[in-house]
């Protein structure tokens, strides 16, 4: 199992630096929590790691090779759960997941157990637009579980969820770490559960110092 060391990661938008040169590592079985105020670039950093932002600079060291951050998403399969839904409002829960399963070439037989797991079984024939905000989040979680990826990138995983939902996300995260998965997530500061396998990356401090 490899560790991934991110070196000199930076991203500029309109010639203004969103975050400086960051160094951090992702290790099997550990989660990395990105902390920082609103606008400090937490979401942007997740999007850089996911490979959405083509202008990002920096590189990743893994085993004995070095690759540009831009190519990282092609090297390691990763799952991304962001602010956007990631599924279609005009398709039912089941139709959405069937497509994602085909896209990620995972096992269609897992759809039903996964829906039961996230508490959406019984809603599988509802259109995406008919779901509540919390249920939409649960559908996004189901999509993520059906994507066999070692690295999970989760942006605000607890937003819109009720107590049970938060407990569910915590369990899923813990199980993913126990499988030697890696996890990178954002948080506005407070985290409902303490993990012993948790590293923290603080954003925006150097910026605050200089101003």
């Amino acid at each position: 199992m490899n560790s991934y060391h991110f070196r000199q990661i930076c991203y500029e938008r309109d010639d203004e630096s969103v975050f400086g040169r960051l160094n951090f590592s992702l290790e099997p079985g550990r989660m990395l929590v990105i902390e920082g105020q609103n606008g400090s670039g937490k979401t942007t950093l997740l999007r850089v790691v996911a490979g959405f932002l083509d202008m990002a600079e920096g590189f990743v060291e893994v085993a004995d090779q070095t690759l540009p951050i831009r190519d990282f998403h092609e090297y390691l399969p990763l799952a991304y759960a962001g602010h956007k839904a990631g599924f279609k409002d005009d398709l039912t829960v089941l139709e959405n997941l069937r497509f994602l399963v085909a896209l990620h070439e995972s096992d269609p037989g897992q759809i039903e157990p996964t829906l039961q797991r996230v508490g959406l079984w019984g809603w599988e024939d509802n259109l995406g637009r008919a779901l509540s905000a919390g249920q939409r989040k649960r559908l996004a979680l189901a999509a993520m579980l059906l994507h066999p990826a070692r690295l999970w990138l989760m942006d605000e995983p607890f937003a819109n969820l009720d107590g049970q939902g938060i407990a569910l996300v915590n369990t899923l995260m813990r199980e993913h770490l126990q499988r030697d998965g890696m996890l990178m997530t954002t948080s506005h500061g407070t985290f409902p559960l303490e993990y012993s396998h948790m590293d923290i990356l603080r954003l925006g401090e150097s910026k605050g110092d200089s101003s």
């Binding site: 996911a50 490979g51 959405f52 998403h73 092609e74 399969p77 990763l78 799952a79 991304y80 962001g82 602010h83 956007k84 839904a85 990631g86 599924f87 279609k88 409002d89 994602l100 896209l103 990620h104 070439e105 999509a143 994507h147 990826a149």
Partner: peptide, 17 residues
């Protein structure tokens, strides 16, 4: 447009396809 707006494109992007 609709795929970019609702984030479906992000999911297609992180797939290996």
């Amino acid at each position: 447009r609709s795929d970019v707006e609702d984030g479906s494109m992000e999911q297609m992007f992180v797939s290996q396809t």
